[in-house]
């Protein structure tokens, strides 16, 4: 199929390439991840990053399998899986909290950067430190109170009705996720103070989400 309108503007090849790049080119290669922490801490950090990645992938796959198994059970055998909904709920919490830390490592959290991008370099750099510190503190605060929440739930002995396991088992990822996210933003602040460039995360340079110039 060909374009038949000779006067058509040529589409911007960069934008197309970016959009077509099946997420493939954009996939995060965990083997290339460099921790912001020195020495043995760095090794642990890299290991945690790996675990987060695996949890994300396995969580999503399990969710698909679990949901389908329920359909097959109900439709083919006539027996629903009663734990199916609770398992999905557990998985969505796992995915969310493993993911926010993973997203923080790779500078993938959504932000509105229009005004930020318009600032001069020095201001951007200062702002980035402020943003990282504030975000880190907010995450650590939430980590603390979600720890408290998990402990309260554990002490109340609330059970999941179908799985009959303690409810805190499925929410324990919240304090972990918030803590690791806070840690990542803290490291990002330090990285920005030590390095000459502007870093979105310890492993991501600013510029990842720069908009491509518009034609029209």
């Amino acid at each position: 199929m060909t374009l038949d309108d000779k006067h058509a503007p040529t589409p911007d090849p960069d934008v197309i390439a970016a959009a077509e790049a099946t997420a493939l080119d954009d996939d995060i290669d965990d083997s290339k991840y460099v921790s912001g922490l020195p020495g043995i801490l760095g090794v642990i950090d890299v290991a945690i990053a790996r675990i987060e990645a695996v949890l994300l992938a396995v969580g999503v796959l399990l969710m698909a399998v679990n949901t389908m198994a329920n359909v097959i059970g109900r439709f083919v055998i006539g027996e629903s899986l009663f734990f199916s909904e609770e398992l999905n709920r557990a998985l969505i919490i796992l995915i969310t909290f493993a993911g926010i830390s993973y997203a923080a490592r790779h500078g993938r959290h959504i932000r509105m950067s229009a005004f930020f991008d318009a600032m001069p370099f020095r201001m951007r750099k200062t702002m980035m430190v402020v943003i990282s510190v504030v975000t880190s503190l907010a995450m650590l605060l939430l980590a603390w109170y979600s720890m408290d929440y998990v402990l309260t739930q554990a002490s109340r002995g609330r059970l999941l009705p179908a799985l009959q396991v303690p409810q805190w088992w499925i929410i324990v990822w919240a304090p972990l996720g918030f803590f690791l996210t806070g840690l990542q933003y803290g490291l990002t602040a330090i990285k920005n103070m030590l390095d000459k460039d502007i870093w979105l995360s310890t492993s991501t340079l600013e510029g990842y989400d720069d908009s491509v110039e518009e034609e029209v």
Binding site: A23, L24, D26, D27, I28, A53, L55, L56, A57, V58, G59, V60, L61, I92, I95, T96, F97, A98, G99, I100, Y102, A103, H106, R108, H109, I110
Partner: peptide
């Protein structure tokens, strides 16, 4: 390998949206 990468990327997008 691609299945793993796709699932991971799905998880990442999900997390970023769901925390909001």
């Amino acid at each position: 390998k691609q299945l793993y990468a796709t699932a991971k990327s799905t998880g990442l997008i999900t997390a970023v949206v769901f925390i909001l």
